[in-house]
Every structure is written in structure tokens, then in C-alpha cells.
Simulated scan of single mutants.
Amino acid sequence: MYKIPESVLVIIHTSDLQVLMIERADKPGFWQSVTGSKDALDEPLQQTAIREVSEETGIVVGDTDTVPCANLDDWHLENIYVIYPVWRHRYAPGVTKNTEHVFSLLVPQNTPVVLSPREHVQYRWLPYRAAADLCFSASNAEAILQLPQRVTGVSVKTPES
């Protein structure tokens, strides 16, 4: 069965903008936020995000769990990108682009992380700028850099501004 070329990117962070970064098992040195494709064409994006967070980090999002659903924020931002050739075989023949929907998830400090060993080998909590620098994906890095403005509504000054 081929992957659906529609996915989520979930930036997991704490209130002080520490961002969870996870290293891919199939590509050592490739660090990212949680990502994953829809399981079915009609799967709601919020459900995809909740499922992927649980599968990849063990963090459970729900109204009666540690992290409430209200902490999952749909940015209503889509990135369309060319699928890396190394992963193109997972998609139907001729599919070369993916549409990624960006979310953020606020978690309490010291939230336990349990990685899926078939997907990721280690994790780090980093300040958002360091997390963006570590990303192999440009769209992931760009989203992380938008985090302060998305979370607080106030842009953070950078040395360039």
C-alpha cells in the first residue's frame, strides 16, 4: 500500500520554547519534528497529528490525558514540497510532491518521551533556534522559527532585524 501524499508536521514544544527534535532511524543525522502521512484519505488532519505524536513519541493527546487536545494548534499552513528521492518509492508511481500541514503542540516541561525504535533513535529538547538549525528539512526549520510568533503573537527580534 502506498503512502498518501498528504502529511502533518507537528512541532512539540514547552512554554519556554524548548522544541523536541527526533533523529530518524533510517537516516542517521537527519533530525526533525514529528511528521507523518494520513492513514486514509478521509482521516482528519487533527487525528493524523494526534496519532503520529503518539506513535513517534509516546505522548498521548486527548481530553483526559496528560496533554489536552486544546494544546494542539493547527496553523492552517500548508507546505508543498518535492519528496526526497530516497523516500519516493513509498508513494504511488508518478507521485513526486507532498502537502504538509503544520501544527504545534504545547506540552508540560519534563513530558516523558518514548520513541518508536523503528522510526527514531534518539531525541533532544533544544531552544527553538538550535532546533531549527538541527533540522534537515527546510520547511521544518522555517516552521520552528515561526514558533515564537505563533505561540505568543509577538515576533522575536533576531540579530538581522
Rank of each mutant, 00 (worst) to 15 (best):
53 V>G: 04
9 L>R: 07
92 A>W: 03
35 T>A: 13
73 D>I: 14
15 S>E: 15
8 V>H: 01
142 E>M: 04
70 A>N: 09
160 E>G: 10
23 E>F: 09
10 V>E: 04
137 S>I: 00
114 V>N: 11
140 N>C: 12
159 P>V: 01
43 E>F: 08
59 I>V: 10
42 D>P: 04
46 Q>G: 11
90 R>K: 10
71 N>E: 05
14 T>W: 07
152 T>E: 06
146 Q>R: 10
149 Q>T: 08
47 Q>G: 14
60 V>Q: 10
93 P>A: 11
147 L>N: 05
125 W>H: 01
60 V>N: 09
117 P>K: 00
18 Q>F: 05
95 V>H: 03
42 D>A: 10
129 R>Q: 11
87 W>M: 07
53 V>F: 07
85 P>H: 05
77 L>R: 05
23 E>Q: 08
160 E>A: 15
127 P>I: 02
41 L>F: 09
67 V>T: 08
69 C>S: 15
26 D>C: 09
152 T>R: 03
80 I>C: 10
66 T>C: 11
54 S>F: 14
87 W>N: 12
97 K>M: 13
12 I>V: 15
1 M>W: 02
84 Y>F: 07
7 S>M: 13
20 L>M: 05
109 Q>F: 10
133 D>S: 08
36 G>M: 08
93 P>S: 06
132 A>K: 04
98 N>R: 11
51 R>K: 04
93 P>K: 05
126 L>N: 04
51 R>T: 06
24 R>W: 09
155 S>H: 14
117 P>I: 05
135 C>T: 00
6 E>D: 14
63 D>C: 03
92 A>Y: 03
69 C>R: 11
68 P>R: 07
44 P>F: 04
17 L>R: 10
148 P>N: 01
101 H>F: 08
141 A>F: 05
25 A>L: 00
21 M>S: 14
140 N>E: 12
50 I>E: 06
54 S>W: 12
147 L>Q: 04
32 Q>D: 13
27 K>L: 14
54 S>M: 12
135 C>M: 11
23 E>I: 07
87 W>R: 07
36 G>E: 08
3 K>V: 00
73 D>H: 14
137 S>C: 09
161 S>M: 11
142 E>T: 12
100 E>G: 14
106 L>N: 05
94 G>W: 07
77 L>M: 02
63 D>S: 10
132 A>Y: 05
39 D>W: 05
4 I>D: 09
100 E>P: 00
141 A>S: 03
